[in-house]
Amino acid sequence: MDFLDAYSVRARLFPAVLAIAPAFALFLLGATWSDPGMPELITALAVAVLFFAAADLARRMGKRKERQLFADTGGRPENRELSRSDQTLDDATKDRYRAFLAKKLGVRAPSAQSEQDEPQKAQAFCNQCYTWLRENTRDTEKFKVLFNENISYGFRRNLLGLKPFGIALNLMTLAGAAALFHYHPDFSSMTEGKLVALAILAAIHACYFTFAVTKRAVLDASAIYARQLVMSCETLMS
């Protein structure tokens, strides 16, 4: 039942559903439902299994795409929201958060001068802070906004990982629909109108994956999650 938790459904299953939507549309439009038989039953079972398989593929391909993305941008991005040089948060807010986190970690927060003189040590302090925050914000009810931002990042990352499959599946679906229309087997009810409708849906689907599913969208979601993770200090301090 772990598969049915909110993160798995929204960050893994939903991207999988979007990726294989053309195949599902072909199944709905292409099969004859007046007297469903064994071919329709087998296809329905195959589509159901395909959803679960695609959800697992979404997770694995999303992780792979994440590694590629970080490699292309010089490695895993360093969270700098707590750094004095970063302008995401105002200085007074950052000072409160840094003091709170330093106390929790049992270390001294770097001063403005030491941060300038030893930037690597200052970044190491920030990394410690983020690690502590991630470990202490796992209550999804208490940190619901943070959890939703994490889901948003996972959704975009996994969808980007499935992008090549989603686009390729469009072409395969159209080819399959054309074959059904041309040969018209007994189990198919593909008509010219349904073929045109499927082509329109496939075009919209391809445009979405081409223009909306991008590296920039994943990086934006990552930045929003990082900011919200720091802002969770307000809840932890209250």
Results as ranks from 00 to 15, higher is better:
Phe3Gly: 12
Ser8Ala: 08
Ser8Thr: 10
Arg10Ser: 07
Val17Gly: 06
Leu18Gln: 15
Ala21Phe: 14
Ala21Gly: 08
Pro22Gln: 02
Phe24Glu: 14
Phe24Ala: 15
Ala25Thr: 07
Leu28Tyr: 08
Leu29Met: 09
Leu29Ala: 07
Ala31Glu: 12
Ser34Glu: 07
Pro36Cys: 05
Gly37Val: 00
Ile42Asp: 01
Ile42Gly: 00
Thr43Ala: 13
Leu45Ile: 06
Ala46Pro: 00
Val49Trp: 12
Phe52Thr: 11
Ala53Arg: 14
Ala54Asn: 09
Met61Trp: 10
Lys63Tyr: 05
Arg64Ile: 01
Lys65Val: 08
Leu69Val: 06
Thr73Cys: 04
Arg80Asn: 10
Glu81Val: 05
Ser85Leu: 09
Ser85Trp: 10
Asp86Arg: 09
Gln87Pro: 01
Thr88Ile: 07
Leu89Pro: 07
Asp91Arg: 15
Ala92Pro: 00
Ala92Ile: 08
Lys94Thr: 04
Tyr97Leu: 04
Tyr97Ala: 10
Gly106Glu: 14
Val107Phe: 04
Ala109Lys: 04
Glu115Gly: 06
Pro119Gln: 07
Pro119Leu: 12
Pro119Asn: 05
Gln120Phe: 15
Ala122Phe: 13
Gln123Ile: 00
Cys129Tyr: 08
Asn136Pro: 14
Thr140Phe: 06
Lys144Gly: 04
Phe147Ser: 10
Asn148Ile: 04
Phe155Val: 08
Leu159Gly: 02
Leu160Met: 00
Leu162Arg: 00
Lys163Thr: 08
Ile167Asp: 06
Ile167Ser: 01
Ile167Gly: 01
Asn170His: 04
Leu171Asp: 15
Leu171Trp: 11
Met172Asp: 11
Leu180Arg: 07
Phe181Pro: 00
Tyr183Phe: 12
Pro185Lys: 01
Thr191Asp: 02
Lys194Arg: 14
Ala197Lys: 05
Ala197Asp: 09
Ala197Tyr: 07
Leu198Asn: 02
Ala199Asn: 08
Ala199Gln: 05
Leu201Val: 05
Ala203Thr: 12
Ala203Ile: 07
Tyr208Asn: 09
Thr210Ser: 12
Ala212Pro: 02
Val213Ile: 07
Arg216Leu: 06
Ala217Ile: 09
Val218Asn: 03
Leu219Glu: 13
Ser222Gln: 13
Ala223Glu: 14
Gln228Ser: 11
Leu229Asn: 06
Met231Ile: 05
Cys233Gln: 02
Cys233Thr: 09
Thr235Glu: 14
Leu236Thr: 05
Leu236Gly: 04
